[in-house]
Computed example of a mutant assay.
Amino acid sequence: MVDIGGVRVEQDGPFTLIAGPCVIESRDAVLRHAERIAAITERVGVPYIFKSSYDKANRTSVDSFRGPGLEAGLEILAEVRERFGVPVITDVHERQDVTAVAEAVDVLQIPAFLCRQTDLVLAACGSGKPVNIKKGQFLSPAEAVPMVHKAHSTGNTQVMVTERGYAFGYQNLVVDYRSLVLLRETGAPVLFDATHSVQLPGGAGEATAGQPRFIPHLARAAVAVGVAGVFMEVHEDPSHALSDGSNSLALDQIPALLGDLKALDTLVKGTA
């Protein structure tokens, strides 16, 4: 079990939602998204952690929007936590940023492309804060087990691992649902990223494309397998999102989908 600001993320407990816009586009946009999603999750009865990134360091093009940066971004994320009373998670890309990020948010997230960066993983876990490691799309479930053991070697047991699809040929990802079962053997709560799993990496040339119509289907399948949480990038207007809009879930689709996921989760885990 991982305790995140009073939200208990555990394999056999009710699933937790991690959701928000991919990148901090502005203070107002982040606060608007956080307020709306928090209200929806409270109404549906799903534990919630807000997610957004202060810097997207692995954009396809050098011209792509990356976010406000470390200092301004962390101020905004800290405001979300204070104003809405929800835990906050964000990506950390550089070892030297770990201390500042750990002071501002509740969970540090290791991006998928960096999941095997030993110094970054050890520094994040050494902060004492909970850590979510996104499984690289280049790793099989078996290859992902050592990265969790690496994290646990710091003595930090507050570690989660997130499945987000596996590279399958050019500009395509597939989800092997056996991974959700195999990753449980690490002892870490397993989450499923329903939005990055529908990416078509580099599918738009100098940007990532996606197939968002599959998000609800993949999310329902993951909850049916039994996951500790679902991760989704959400935007009020995906067509105008500054990052990953092509694989984001439209905000107005959340209530119906969460209702489905909660019913499935209760059926699978018997947590009613």
Rank of each mutant, 00 (worst) to 15 (best):
M1L: 09
G6T: 07
V7A: 08
D12I: 01
P14M: 03
F15H: 10
L17N: 11
G20A: 12
C22M: 04
I24D: 14
I24C: 13
I24L: 15
I24K: 14
S26W: 06
D28T: 08
V30N: 13
L31G: 08
R32S: 15
A38Q: 06
T41P: 12
E42H: 11
R43A: 15
V44D: 12
V44N: 12
V46W: 07
Y48P: 00
I49D: 05
F50H: 00
K51H: 10
Y54K: 01
D55T: 09
A57K: 00
A57Y: 03
N58M: 02
N58A: 06
P68K: 12
L70P: 11
E71K: 09
L74V: 02
L77P: 05
A78I: 00
E79V: 08
E79L: 11
V80P: 05
V80T: 13
R81T: 09
R81V: 06
R83V: 06
R83N: 06
V88K: 01
D91H: 00
V92S: 04
Q96K: 15
Q96V: 14
Q96Y: 15
D97I: 00
D97G: 01
A100P: 00
L108P: 10
I110V: 15
P111K: 07
P111I: 09
A112V: 01
F113W: 14
C115I: 13
Q117F: 06
L122V: 14
A123H: 00
A124E: 10
A124K: 10
G128L: 07
P130H: 02
K135D: 03
Q137G: 03
S140E: 10
P141Y: 08
A142C: 01
A142G: 06
P146V: 04
S153V: 05
T154G: 07
T154S: 12
G155S: 11
G155M: 11
N156C: 07
M160C: 06
M160S: 08
E163W: 01
R164I: 05
G165R: 02
N172C: 07
N172P: 13
L173A: 06
V174S: 13
V175W: 04
D176P: 00
R178W: 05
L180K: 01
L183E: 10
E185L: 09
D193E: 08
A194C: 03
A194E: 03
E206C: 00
A207T: 08
P212F: 00
P212V: 02
R213W: 15
I215G: 01
P216A: 10
H217R: 14
A219F: 07
A219K: 00
A222C: 13
G226K: 04
F231R: 01
H235Y: 11
P238V: 03
S243K: 08
S248R: 06
L249T: 04
L251G: 04
D252A: 04
G259I: 01
K262M: 09
T266I: 13
L267H: 14
L267N: 13
G270Q: 05
